[in-house]
């Protein structure tokens, strides 16, 4: 008798992370279809999912979803390990680090909008830092800094409002899927 299948134990956490990562990947793909005047200026819709995961399931889960989104997004868009992929990875890394610090801010005063804006600045900061060190002489990037920063501010704020509204929405009357419950205490 030969064993024909390898069984990997899968926990409920794994399934949830996979489901949420799929959501983030879907948004990444949808976003790639939106034309952008400057490469790098994107709404960052997947960050909505990352932020929701962070607020509901913690930083580890958010990091997993972010990493899976990057890898699978790279595979699906065909830019895995290309320069654009590394820029995105640097942005995601800095963004996660910023979120890891920012989530300890008092929730009474700093809601999802703050987290989202800070994460967006982290994202663009990480990307520009890597691009400046690796791809382009810094002087060329300097002129684009205000554009990127303004985009981060606007999209970060909009995404943050979306997250806040999703969290404030009344829980799952069949509209939300599965275990998307509002956090007991933001």
């Amino acid at each position: 008798m030969t064993r024909s299948a390898i069984e990997l134990p899968v926990t409920a956490d794994d399934r949830r992370i996979a489901r949420l990562a799929a959501l983030a990947i879907g948004l990444t793909l949808a976003e790639a279809a939106i034309p952008s005047p400057i490469p790098g200026v994107k709404p960052g819709l997947a960050n909505i999912v990352i932020l929701l995961v962070l607020l509901q399931y913690g930083w580890r889960a958010a990091a997993w979803v972010s990493a899976l989104r990057l890898l699978a997004g790279g595979l699906l868009l065909g830019n895995l390990f290309a320069p654009g992929f590394w820029l995105g990875a640097a942005g995601a890394l800095v963004s996660l680090a910023v979120l890891g610090l920012a989530r300890h801010l008092p929730g009474r005063y700093f809601g999802p909008v703050s987290l989202s804006v800070l994460a967006a600045f982290g994202h663009i900061g990480g990307q520009l830092a890597l691009a400046g060190i690796w791809l382009l002489p810094a002087a060329a990037l300097l002129k684009l800094l205000p554009v990127f920063a303004a985009a981060a501010l606007i999209f970060g704020a909009v995404n943050g409002v979306i997250v806040a509204r999703l969290l404030a929405a009344p829980a799952a009357s069949g509209r939300q899927s599965g275990s998307c419950t509002p956090p007991s205490k933001p």
Partner: peptide
Amino acid sequence: MTMKILRAGDIGVLLVGTGLVAALTVYAW
């Protein structure tokens, strides 16, 4: 249980962000 969507600190973060964008604009352009 509803928390406000925009809290005091959020407005602060948005203001600081706007200031940062303005400073970068002056600096770069």
